[in-house]
Amino acid sequence: MKNTLEKLKRYEKAVISEIYGDDIKQKLIDMGVIPGTEVMISNIAPFGDPIEICLRGYELSLRKSDASKIFVTTKD
């Protein structure tokens, strides 16, 4: 199932399929956020934004608006 990253449930595993947004793309690539990478949301900030994602054995925070530019596929 295709979805954007910020719509995932907490601890739900997914695989990145596409990245949009020219402004942040390079930065995301540098941090290892590329198609084929397995991710999950591991935490959400108390005010509801930003979110913390777990990938490649480390944790990265990003805002929901940026997460919405990352498409993921879930297993079911």
């Binding site: 942040i24 930065k27 480390y58 990265l60 925070s61 990003l62």
Partner: peptide, 11 residues
């Protein structure tokens, strides 16, 4: 303008 918050959270 719009900044981002792409930041590593160290253990």
């Amino acid at each position: 303008d719009n900044s981002n918050f792409i930041m590593e959270l160290p253990p």
